[in-house]
Amino acid sequence: MRKAERLFQIIQILRRSSRPVTAAQLANELEVAKRTIYRDIAHLIGQRVPVDGEAGFGYVLDPQYDMPPLMLTPDEIEAVLLGVQMVEKLGDAAITNAAKDVIAKITSTLPGDLLPFIAEPAVSLRPGDSIGGSMFDTRPLRRAIREGRKIKLEYCAVDGEVTHRIVWPVLLGYADARSLLIAWCESKQAFRHFRTERILDLEVLEETIGLSKRTLRQQWRQFRETELSESRPTP
């Protein structure tokens, strides 16, 4: 690993950690000696990168530090490419196009010596059919989730019954060969999973949920934990 790449990786590791990171931890992840880490930290501090800490205690990066222009390692490039391939298998056209746009933006900013990792990556998923295959447009759902807005659904149940519901969207998830809207249903007063291919019509309402996205998601996780614990067989 080149020194410039290693320095960038140190910044990345410190940036993603909420606790001080020791030289030993940095050395272990980057597969170098601790003395190399000490020299690199000294170099970063000399370049006015706001790293604080000391040997034996650990190092932290000022959260206000503004990263330099986009610079990725080969591992990061290949991780992004794998992610794009996984997204393509979902069969969600809008998300797939967004993922391809990310690759195009990354490609336009990479230095020439890293472009081969885009053109000929060392990793790939096995070719095959998409796991989703649905042409359902998820953009309104994702917008409602981001903006914390209620959704009016016209939904067809498995038995063919069509219902109209007001829901509070939590998350758009993917399971097996289908995509699911996870939401709090006002009529059922409970969390429900709606298969997107059974949504006949939807309208994103102007009315907001009235809870933060974080609170709503925490409540859903608590619901799931309770549901899972009750489904486990009694010893």
Rank of each mutant, 00 (worst) to 15 (best):
E206N: 14
D101H: 06
L228M: 08
D62T: 05
L228R: 03
G91M: 02
S124C: 02
L61A: 05
G210D: 05
T208E: 12
I145D: 04
K188M: 11
R192D: 05
T215P: 03
R6Y: 07
F8Q: 12
A23I: 02
T109I: 09
L172P: 07
A42N: 11
A175S: 15
V158D: 09
I131C: 11
I209R: 00
R6N: 04
I13S: 00
Y59E: 00
I199C: 11
E78H: 09
G56A: 01
D62R: 08
A93H: 02
S212R: 13
P121D: 03
F194C: 10
V49Q: 04
I41N: 00
L81G: 02
I145P: 09
M1E: 04
T163D: 07
G46T: 06
V80F: 06
V162M: 11
Q222F: 05
H164P: 07
F57E: 07
F191Y: 11
R6G: 06
V123R: 09
I11V: 13
P20K: 10
Y59M: 04
L7P: 04
I77P: 06
M1H: 05
I151K: 10
P127M: 11
R19M: 12
I45P: 00
R2A: 08
R142M: 14
C156G: 09
A42C: 06
S212H: 15
R217G: 03
S18Q: 14
G128S: 08
S212E: 15
A93T: 05
S229V: 11
K152Q: 15
C185T: 03
E197C: 06
S212V: 10
R224N: 04
A99W: 04
H193V: 04
A93N: 02
L180W: 10
E186P: 03
